[in-house]
Design a protein around this nucleic acid. Structure first.
Lengths: 208, 208
DNA sequence: TGGTCTCTCCACCTTTTGGCTGATATGGCC
DNA sequence: GGCCATATCAGCCAAAAGGTGGAGAGACCA
């Protein structure tokens, strides 16, 4: 049996090193490459053709994790991408799943959880950390509060402090559309102002 | 020469594993113990008497990093504590230094930086990541950016998502005064809108 | 005593945001 | 084909926020 080939993508050397050490203890898993940015990840995926990509969502400058997932999935749909990140932000989860992620692990996951996720991913199984799963579950019960991918994207930018005009420019849509999305977001979050939305989003969603 | 004994404190198994792997490559550094919480850290420090403690500030439930640093320093002032965390929040830096931390590293630090910090710490040298240092330096040079008590109070309420009217009611001042304070706050934070001020405040000051 | 800081307040004006009622296009689903 | 969710856009109006340029009172300090 061939070992499952894994590509690690994280801008923290320490985390890559830790994953390599942990995964190295498993005979059926082999780390074949590392990358510290979205761009590097795409290159490394070309070179190594890993079966599984373990990727952090937050990566300093340049391409973010979501975009990297999209492009990876586009180039090679057979490759399974597992998100491995610090926060269980609602928005990130939705966007990551939308982009094609097979699993969603938090960095405080136990080693066994990580192994299980990697093994599951190659079999098409979706594995996620308990807090992430319960969050999704809770959302399923309150469908009215689920943000669409686009809304989540907008909310994420909103928490950067952008104005409606800037949001429009950034997303290539008109200011009118921005306002429409915002109105929907406010309703779903149960707030009335942009300030409250930002406060709620950052505290509740773990956005930073 | 005896190797420098190090205790790792982080609630993420992956990070501990990574640090152990990286530090293990250095002949003069030896990891003598691990802990995943503040409480465990105190126990482990008693047992192993490490020369250096590498500690994350954010640790799930229970005692937080700052409190753990204080107690460690109190019990054994010779022990050097280096903060190893993800965020360079102004508030955290000040509090950590205040609690007696010898160094402040970010998790995206290069391995060499980590080694240097550990070696420096036992010699009484204080080492911090470049972004952290520049932040502290900037604050020292620009006392103009320090908020007055009243402004800080207002900013704190602002991050709750209140409107100007609500802020006025809450603080028993007119809306005009609220606007004056806000203008000053924006200038000091270097932002132009309330949205950006909220985002900056929550992220930078650790207000949550 | 004079200067500086802080906190308070006002008026006027522009820009931004939010609330409302629409509309069109697309794609998935039954 | 019809239904629904999503994403896009418009116009109008009221409310909120922001910019400018003041000003007075009290505290503190040199």
């Amino acid at each position: 049996m061939t070992a499952i080939s894994v590509l690690l993508v994280d801008d923290h050397t320490v985390v890559r090193s830790g994953l390599k050490a942990l995964l190295g203890t498993q005979a059926d898993i082999a780390v074949v490459g590392e990358a510290s940015s979205g761009e590097e990840a795409l290159e490394a995926a070309q070179v190594h053709s890993p079966a599984v990509v373990l990727m952090d969502l937050a990566m300093g400058d340049g391409m973010d994790g979501i975009e990297a997932i999209k492009q990876l999935r586009q180039r090679n749909p057979k490759q399974a991408v597992i998100v491995f990140t610090t926060y269980d932000s609602d928005a990130d989860i939705v966007r990551a799943v939308d982009a094609g992620a097979m699993g969603y692990l938090l960095k405080d996951a136990a080693p066994e959880e990580i192994f299980a996720a990697v093994r599951g991913a190659v079999q098409g199984k979706s594995v996620m950390s308990a807090p992430v799963a319960s969050r999704l579950f809770q959302q399923l019960r309150n469908p009215d509060e689920i943000l669409t991918p686009r809304e989540a994207e907008l909310l994420s930018l909103l928490t950067q402090g952008l104005s409606n005009r800037d949001l429009g420019k950034r997303l290539f849509i008109s200011e009118a559309t921005v306002k429409t999305h915002l109105a929907h977001i406010y309703a779903k979050l149960g707030v009335e102002t942009r300030a409250a939305a930002i406060a709620t989003a950052i505290r509740r969603e773990g956005m930073r």
